[in-house]
Design a protein around this nucleic acid. Structure first.
Lengths: 340, 340
DNA sequence: TTGAAAGCGGTACCAC
DNA sequence: GTGGTACCGCTTTCAA
């Protein structure tokens, strides 16, 4: 059953039926209810393909995930971010087009999406320093929102969590507990977030005149084995750390295993604070939940990113939205936007 | 630049240009190359929305993920499956529509997708016993493929791994090593796969006349804390297990932590075999990699599922495809389809 | 081998 | 308030 047939069965024009269904005000109430009832009765749903062509909008948002050797999506934050964003898309009537492409084909993928008009905008995640995607998307005129930031000062829309502040605060917390040899197990520093986290860590240490120890600072792709192997060698080496700061829960899981193997007890012999944590994964390590972001805050961030992106799509030409989120420390919820 | 403009610039009709671009044989070779060159020169890409309307095909496949309380996607297999499927979709020119909906709204989501024609088919994952989705999709006439099976004997297309065989073989392996008190940490038994795995486990034990111990068999949502808590209480209780069989790497990670805390050494004091494992997560637990499926085999399964589904879409009315995959034991690759 | 024209199923402008 | 109709941009008969 299509619009025309539905209209005929009601002795109305397609125009009127379309208007009634789409909530236009000029339709008489009685007509509208008659149309609504009939539509429901025959289980009518407007054809999305036709609508997309007629309106010129795809009502679809693309998430392009570059696949590197290690499948990044496994990192729990990808899933949580997607869920948060997906909820908002659904609420706003948008579909989510997920495109996983080899990293080398990312540019081609974006060009394709822009050229054939199958999305109205795209979400960009995990930007690297001077990420080429930003210039490309700007050039293509495809609306986009970046989750994270690049170092440079281009004028694009992004939402980022206050990485530096989060790690500075977490480091302060460990220092307050009396720790001096704190290890930082970070993600790859080509990613902007890892860079900021290290700066936060270093700032906190410097402020207390505690030297950072090079052998306790490593950064690599965030996997459990990276956490396990790094923590193992640190714990077995000279000047072992008494506390760990990890950039991902995946890393923290590895650290915890290394610690457990050595009979080190969480919260007594050793403390771990990590990012992207959630209660079911890791808690009570230092006498209570200890993490910077949480899974629910990542999800909230995904939702907020989706809202901003949709707004950007609906209002082309609006100035770039740049939102910094304070994810707090030892909290279960994002605290939302902040400044500074 | 659209087809009509491109055609005008070439002094050809849209018809001919369309044919040239789509590889129709009746176009003169010289014309075709002229068209191709021009298309490339102006960076022409056919509008996907228009094409979808004209052809009546969405060229899109839907993955509907029901969200339960615990976000299942975190389970690594979801990501790997998606990656495997996504590669095939991209190769075949299909888009992937990812829809995450509250479990209670799954039916409405499918009805919507079917009614508004935004997908040509859908992938169904993690079926429960007597899963209502199967009847619904059959009724809606929307092509679908199930990854996994339900217990009942309906005639639908599925691809499943040989869960029973995998777990039977894994259990045999542990029995061969001399283990007698083997614990099974399974997923929720409302899922068909969990049910089959238990049967495989029980069959192996029965064949050797080794009694299964009720306190060593638990099934619950697959999380790290489930693994940790269950293993902890088993290890501290009477008749502790000497080996574990886990339905997910996530569970195994929890088991390993419990074991590490108690100073139990992998491969000596305790052995773990798990499903959905991968080297970076867990290995050498019994003196070598030990798992039933692997991340790469899940990915392969995703790819194969995508191929089957696309085939189903292209050839409506073909008989149901039912493929069983042997995922082996202690191997890094799927061995592919098998029977029995 | 090429072209004219009728859709595909909606939306939205303009007239009534 | 309602209806006629020209699109949206491509595919696909049918005719030449």
């Amino acid at each position: 059953m299509n619009l025309k047939e539905l209209a005929e069965s009601l002795n109305l024009s397609p125009t009127t039926v379309s208007r009634a269904l789409n909530g236009y005000p000029e339709v008489r109430e009685e007509t509208r209810s008659r149309v609504m009832a009939a539509a429901k009765a025959v289980n009518y749903a407007p054809n999305a393909r036709a609508r997309r062509l007629a309106t010129g909008r795809a009502m679809t948002i693309g998430h392009v995930i570059p696949l590197t050797g290690r499948a990044e999506m496994v990192n729990p934050i990808f899933a949580d971010f997607l869920i948060g964003a997906g909820e908002v898309y659904a609420r706003e009537g948008y579909d989510l087009l997920l495109s996983m492409v080899p990293e080398t084909e990312t540019e081609a993928a974006f060009r394709q999406l822009a050229a054939n008009g199958s999305v109205d905008g795209v979400m960009v995640q995990a930007p690297q320093e001077n990420d080429p995607r930003i210039g490309l998307l700007t050039e293509l005129g495809l609306p986009f929102l970046v989750h994270g930031r690049t170092g440079d000062a281009m004028d694009y829309s992004w939402l980022d969590i206050a990485n530096m502040r989060a790690f500075r605060r977490a480091t302060d917390f460990l220092l307050d507990l009396g720790h001096r040899r704190i290890a930082l197990l970070n993600g790859q520093e080509s990613f902007d977030f890892a860079h900021r986290r290290r700066r936060g860590f270093e700032a906190a240490m410097a402020a207390r005149h505690v030297p950072t120890l090079p052998h306790l600072m490593v950064s690599e792709a965030m996997t459990e084995s990276f956490g396990y192997l790094s923590a193992s060698s640190m714990l077995d080496g000279p000047e072992p750390p008494t506390a760990f700061l990890a950039s991902s829960v995946i890393i923290a899981i590895g650290i915890r295993r290394a610690a457990a193997e050595r009979g080190l007890r969480m919260g007594r012999d050793i403390s771990i604070i990590c990012h992207d944590d959630e209660l079911s994964y890791l808690n009570n390590d230092i006498g209570g939940p200890a993490f910077t972001a949480t899974r629910s805050s990542i999800r909230a961030a995904g939702g907020r990113c989706a809202e901003i992106l949709i707004d950007l799509i609906r209002h082309p030409g609006r100035p770039a939205v740049q939102e910094l989120w304070d994810v707090g420390l030892m909290v279960g919820q994002s605290t939302g936007p902040c400044n500074g």
